[in-house]
Simulated assay, not measured.
Amino acid sequence: MALVARSALADRLAAEGVLDAGWRGAFGAVARHLFLPAVYWEFVDGAAVRRDRDADPQEWLAGAYRDTAAVTQWDDGNEAGGHQDFTSSLSMPTMVARMLGDLAVEDGHRVREVGTGPGFNAALLAHRLGADRVVSVEIDEAVARAARGNLAAAGLGGVEVVVGDGADAAIGADGRVDRLIATCSSLLTDVPVAWLGQTLPGGVIVAPVATLFGGGAIARLRVAGDGRAASGRFTGAADFMRMRQQRYQAPPVDAYLPGEWPGDAEASVTGLDPEDIGGSWLAQFAVGAALPDVYYRRAPYEEMVTWWFFDTAVTSWATVDSVPGGGEFDVRQSGPRRLWEEIHAAWNAWDKAGRPGYEQFGLTVTTTGARTVWLDDPDHPWNPTTH
């Protein structure tokens, strides 16, 4: 059944146009179920559904070959954590195929992967290029150990799995690679500069990035000939776990608003429903790229939803009350910045530009630490708001 299932998965991905012909053999040969533990959680319609090999082996195996993500670790392995956050997984096969296509590998290339996870992605790379051409970096020792076992079970134990921080420049001490792929997301403002030094001039970096505001995407960057910058467009939407050292711990609301709401906030109204932003992954990305230090919390209350907006400097906040069917919405803003006005301006700029998609946006990262999002052309930075 497993052989038929993985062949059928490869056929589906190819029929959907997401599987590059060069990857068809790898997807048909590498058994995805070998990279799953006895118990995992399959994401189905936004919910994590437990799959237990002993309790229901047929469904456990079937889930391994559906186009769904599979959670293999919660709460950094803290079994007493109560499954608050998933911290290691097998990505959706569609996403894996698209990112490998973006990587554009060629025979003889050396590839470094950041974020081994269970090892499936590294296995596909190894099948295509050879195990000796792939090095994978994993920050969690237990996850790395399991990945080595999975790779060995798949007959690809020659892949080197290194325990370490993939954003650390020292990781590249074994030499620059032709391609670098990350399977964990970094913030737009913190895409690791070390990756430029780890990748050969002319090489390609494929990595998911995100904003604090939401709306992650896959960046495909090519390293310049002098190695001082990498630039390229986004290729589509993505939602990956954040690199562990970049997880943002938001301050409590009381840090912004000591005392009762609305405090000293100024009142106004707006014609833009924040639900229109929150309901669009692309809109969140456009706003978040313009305002990388702003994040939100959504608080439903009966028929109303209050949107809270905060800056990371803990100086300013805003709320907007979204009421279904409303034409105007109550706004409160406090602090030196008028956060809702900035958000509204970013939305307006995106809307007036024709609501450009991910592929019209791009990113440039330099060795000096600059990370610049641009629209249509690297000479047109995406900065529709200033503060």
Rank of each mutant, 00 (worst) to 15 (best):
A345G: 11
D254T: 15
A238N: 04
T270M: 06
D330C: 00
F285Y: 08
G325W: 06
G259A: 03
T312S: 12
R298W: 12
Y256K: 01
Y296F: 14
E275Q: 11
V305A: 08
E303L: 09
D264R: 15
F329Q: 00
R332F: 06
T319K: 00
Q284C: 14
Y301E: 13
W340T: 07
Q246T: 12
S316E: 02
G327C: 03
L257K: 08
D264V: 00
Q245H: 14
G325R: 05
Y296S: 15
P251H: 08
A299H: 12
E342H: 14
L282H: 10
W307Q: 12
Y296A: 14
V287M: 03
V269F: 12
P300G: 02
D351H: 14
T319Q: 05
A255K: 12
G327Q: 12
I277Q: 05
E342M: 15
W347N: 02
S280P: 03
L272W: 03
P258A: 09
T270Y: 06
V320L: 08
V253K: 10
P262Q: 11
G288C: 05
Q245R: 13
P251T: 06
V320N: 09
R338G: 08
L272M: 08
G288K: 07
T315P: 00
Q284L: 13
Y296M: 12
I277F: 05
I277E: 04
A290S: 08
Y301F: 12
P258L: 13
W261I: 08
Y296W: 13
A265L: 08
M304A: 13
